[in-house]
Amino acid sequence: MSAVPGPAAGDAGDTAPGAAAGDAAPGGAVSAAGDASDASAGDPADAAVPDAPAGAGRTGADALRGTGMTGADAPSGATAGMTGPPAPEAAAHGPRYALGHGPQATGPDLLPADRLLDPGSPELDRLLTSEYEGSGHRTAHAAALTLIAVYAGRVTAAAVLQWALDGRVPDLRAENVLVRPSGHGIGGVWLRRNRMLTGAATAARPATAARPGAGSAEVTPAPPCGHVHASAGDRTSATCPACFRAATLPLLHRAVLDDHLLPFADALHRRTRAGLRQLRGGVAHGCATALCASQADPDELALRWDEFSATAPGGIGHLGEVAQVRRPDGTPRLVYLRRTCCLYYTSAEAVRCASCCLTGRAERLRAYAAGT
């Protein structure tokens, strides 16, 4: 029998206990009944990021490099995986982005992610129970709100960051993913098939600029996108990185959001009656964390978030914002400020997460700048 209590009568709604109706305004602090502390904890999306899982391959690149897809493997409108020299891999940015694959992607401790989309499945109950017990939550809907943030900030992080780096999209659709529960957090992510997804209009890889002495680059007529593209010595048409990202963005939205995180949020809503808007706020938080936690340039990451969120399904672009702060050593850092509450302060740790909407915007930025 599950250790997670059944849903309470009625919908948990989109507000935290003690908050006004609707989400707390990000500009002002709101005191919450039963909040034991105003201290900031690490974001739930940062919870329990382990070292690379066993079977993740010899290098980070191994864990993300696509092996190609057949038409049967590809989603509607997709073609073969891209070829050519690999760009910097998401896995090089830390263990959050590590993906296991191959023979090690088996075992009773691994849960098929597509089974988590069924609100009545034992797999969803097991993952929710793991978070409920690991966090010491008092209600199932609070555990669900924390779970969605840590899940989105780990399980699909590699796809979001890889797209931001070079426009490629690792196959992190639910049907291709297995996850390992680990108390408060996700203990590992495995792929059934190690591959990249590409859309039919994006088969060409972005070309690098011509090197001095490697043949002159000629300017070709501006394509419909309005960018000026250069083709190198072989005179093949090149796709600029910005256009490539724009072309693969719908595929990323479909693979990560439409086919995975948003149905997962729906399942948690039906299983626990946690507010759907709050759950989608956790999806937004996790996707933003995939960028904020990386080692890439914060200015570029902020632009990628704007691109990703502007047309993202589920309205997640309206559920928070990214901002830049400076660490004590002067280096810039991209952070995410939520507009929904994950109720983590009701867990056994009894503290607000660093991005909590119940804490004023200025106070959150100060805490992030101080290194919290």
Rank of each mutant, 00 (worst) to 15 (best):
C240V: 14
C240F: 13
A242N: 11
C243M: 14
C243K: 15
F244T: 13
F244E: 09
F244W: 15
A246D: 12
A246K: 10
T248G: 00
L249I: 08
P250K: 07
P250R: 12
L252M: 11
L252P: 02
L252W: 04
L252I: 04
L252G: 04
H253G: 00
R254S: 11
V256W: 01
V256S: 12
D258C: 06
D258V: 05
D258N: 13
D259C: 03
D259S: 08
H260Y: 05
L261Y: 02
L261T: 04
L261N: 06
L261H: 05
L262V: 03
P263E: 05
F264N: 05
F264V: 00
F264C: 06
F264W: 06
F264D: 05
A265V: 10
A265F: 00
D266S: 09
D266E: 10
A267Y: 07
A267T: 01
A267F: 00
L268C: 07
H269R: 09
H269Y: 08
R270T: 12
R271S: 11
T272V: 06
T272K: 01
R273G: 04
R273A: 08
R273V: 08
R273P: 12
R273D: 11
A274H: 08
A274G: 12
G275D: 03
G275P: 12
G275A: 07
L276C: 10
Q278L: 15
Q278F: 09
L279K: 14
L279P: 03
L279D: 00
